[in-house]
Amino acid sequence: MISIENVSKSFVLHNQGTAEIPVMQGASLTVSAGECVALVGASGAGKSTLMRMIYGNYLTASGRIMVGDVDVARAAPREIIQLRRRTLGYVSQFLRVVPRVSTLDVVAEPLLATGTDADAARTQAETLLTRLNIPQRLWALSPTTFSGGEQQRVNIARGFAFPYPALLLDEPTASLDPTNRATVLAMIAEAKTRGAAIIGIFHDHAARDEICDRQFDMTKFTMGPAA
C-alpha cells in the first residue's frame, strides 16, 4: 500500500546563510495492508519529516513515495488533495482547528467530504466522540479552548472517522490517560484488521511494542548531526 523508494531530504535555509540541513538519504520502506510499522530513531532523526513527506506536506526532492498508485513525490496538488480525501489519513501531533467549527463537525468533516450524508456522518462522529470520552456538553463547542488531551482525542476521532486504506499516526497516544490510551490502541488494532497500512511514531514504547509489527530505524538514513 505504501512504498517508499530511495528518498532523500534536506532543508535549505536561504535566510540563515543558506544553511543546508541534510536530514535523510536513501530511505526505503514498504508497508503492506494490515501492517503497522513504527518509525524509530533519536530526536531529530527525521521521523516526523518522513511522515510529512508521505503526506505531501513536505516536498520530496528525489526518490519515490507510492501511496496506492499515486507517487506523492511527483503528484500535482489536486492529486494529493484527492489522495488525502479517500486514501491517506494523518493524525498529526497537534490538532489544527478552524475557528467557529463545532467539535462534532470537525470530526464529521472527513465523512462529509467523501459524500456521506449529514445525518450518518454526525451519528458516526457522535459514536467516535463517545468512545473517546469527550463529554457530550463539549460537542457543540469549537475545540479551540479544549485541554491538550481533549484536543488530541478530537484529532484521533477525526483521523479515524473515514476508513482510510493508509494511515499516518504521529504520537497518537501522547498525553492520554490509561483508559483513553487503551481505546486508541484498540482503534489502531481495528484499523489493521480491516486492512489499513499504518505508519506510526510512538515515544510510548509499550504502546509501540503492543501494536506495531515492525520497526523502521531512521538513524540508518540520517545524515545530520543526529547520525
Binding site: F11, G56, N57, P77, I80
Partner: peptide
C-alpha cells in the same frame, strides 16, 4: 499545495 508551501 498550500500547506506544503507554508510548511516547507
Amino acid at each position: 499545495l498550500t500547506d506544503q508551501v507554508l510548511d516547507d
